[in-house]
Design a protein around this nucleic acid. Structure first.
Lengths: 248, 248
DNA sequence: CGGGGAATTGAGAGGGATCAAAAAGGGTGG
DNA sequence: CCACCCTTTTTGATCCCTCTCAATTCCCCG
């Protein structure tokens, strides 16, 4: 039986802002159900023009597009709480695909919910704009990396930013219980596709940074052993706490 | 004296969708005035956290971010009708800057208009989401280029896509009157910064394609002499007509 | 006519790509 | 518990696309 929004475990995390009863009721009303996905499942096919609308409840996924000969670019990674499918109907350009990295659960909305959310609760419309603009800023960062950063800088940047996002989804209790580091369910191939590097070079670069003691990545978990040094390599500033965000 | 929205020449273009009287009245009410900018003027400084909100009325501009040592990445180009400043307050990451390429005029809104537009006219809120999502899809394309396309493919892609956008802003009458091609107020340095290439290599690549007779770029105008061949090099599909879009 | 930005062109170096293959892991059915 | 297969990670060797650094040449403008 599908989850009641009000009981959604994500909402209890400090990362997400509280919503009013009216807002929650509307989201609940528009919710069509849930869908479980296996690792590597295509939630939205590349080129789909009228795909659905989802909120990622658990698991990781990524947006991607590719060229005819198979070269693939990962546009950004999706973590729990990310809203999926807003761009699908609004571009002329071929749309991107969305594929899961792990087992995942998504909350399913009807396509028209995008408009209903705006119409019935303008604050939720604003929240959608917020999320869309925020995701764009992630893509901006990735473009800066792909366009202007060296391989080493790209890897350091990606590890740091993904670590921060993953970490922000945990409670203090989680941090105490879990083994060190955060779950990091990527393959080096995924990282390479996200950074615009070849697999071989991504591996060598990772290896180089790891041997300098900056991080440890094994058994699907990532541990930053020297976050300050990573930040320096990546030329990152800021405290790294992702901003409190809405949850649709 | 500032322009009355209802008389805005942009609205007469078939590229922009019609808006209701209520919608227009609200936009008019939130409009604070206009601002004229010289070429190369910084409309929003990189790193500004509480910048303004604008609609580009005339001229070209671009969004960009850069690294400490000066390497710069242009995220996407802004043409008349583009809405500017939505992302500014919503990211943790440092914000991008916005700089003009030509003389430009922007319509100035108060920062809080973003919320007022959503609140007072949900349809305009939806339009803002639309524009934000659409801009994200442009950045997606640029990331695909920077990450996975060769220099030649990047140049062909950028020329084709920019040509289409510029062309869509003209009326049939304009096309008849103007000299061949579209106004293309870029410098090769700008193109290089947008594509993640060096200036020298961008020049050589442009030269190579131009000598093969694919396009002509001189005196600030771009003419596609062989658009089909360019599309082929770029691996682009679709008819290239940008979708009809809202105008805030 | 001088000056400054933009476009070109050359030469040489190098960061990553490619191509291959070996080493690790991780299931899975027998 | 083991043999086997498939995926992922590593590592090596070589190549080449693109960058860097430097000059020139253009072109526009005062």
């Amino acid at each position: 039986m599908p989850l009641v929004c009000d009981h959604c475990p994500l909402r209890r995390l400090p990362l997400f802002m509280p919503h009013s009863a009216d807002e929650l009721a509307l989201v609940q009303k528009l919710k069509r159900g849930e869908r479980e996905l296996a690792p590597g499942a295509e939630l939205i096919a590349e080129g789909a023009t009228n795909a659905g609308l989802f909120t990622l409840l658990s698991g990781w996924a990524f947006r991607h597009k590719s060229l005819a000969d198979g070269r693939r670019q990962i546009l950004n990674f999706l973590l729990p709480g990310d809203f999926i499918g807003v761009q699908q109907r609004m571009g002329d350009g071929a749309a991107h695909g969305v594929t899961t990295l792990t087992e995942a659960t998504v909350c399913v909305f009807e396509r028209n919910s995008l408009w209903e959310l705006h119409r019935q609760q303008p604050s939720m419309g604003f929240n959608i704009t917020w999320l869309t603009a925020h995701e764009e800023s992630l893509v901006d960062d990735n473009l800066l990396s792909a366009g202007r950063r060296s391989a080493e800088e790209r890897v350091a940047t990606a590890l740091t930013l993904l670590y921060r996002r993953a970490d922000a989804l945990r409670t203090e209790a989680d941090r105490a219980i879990e083994p060190p580091g955060v779950a990091f369910p990527l393959t080096q191939q995924h990282l390479a596709d996200a950074l615009g590097l070849s697999l071989a070079h991504t591996n060598r670069t990772l290896r180089g940074l790891a041997q300098r003691g900056l991080f440890e990545w094994s058994e699907g978990r990532l541990r930053l052993l020297n976050p300050a040094a990573l930040k320096r390599v990546a030329e990152l500033y800021g405290d790294g706490r992702p901003p409190v965000r809405p949850l649709i």
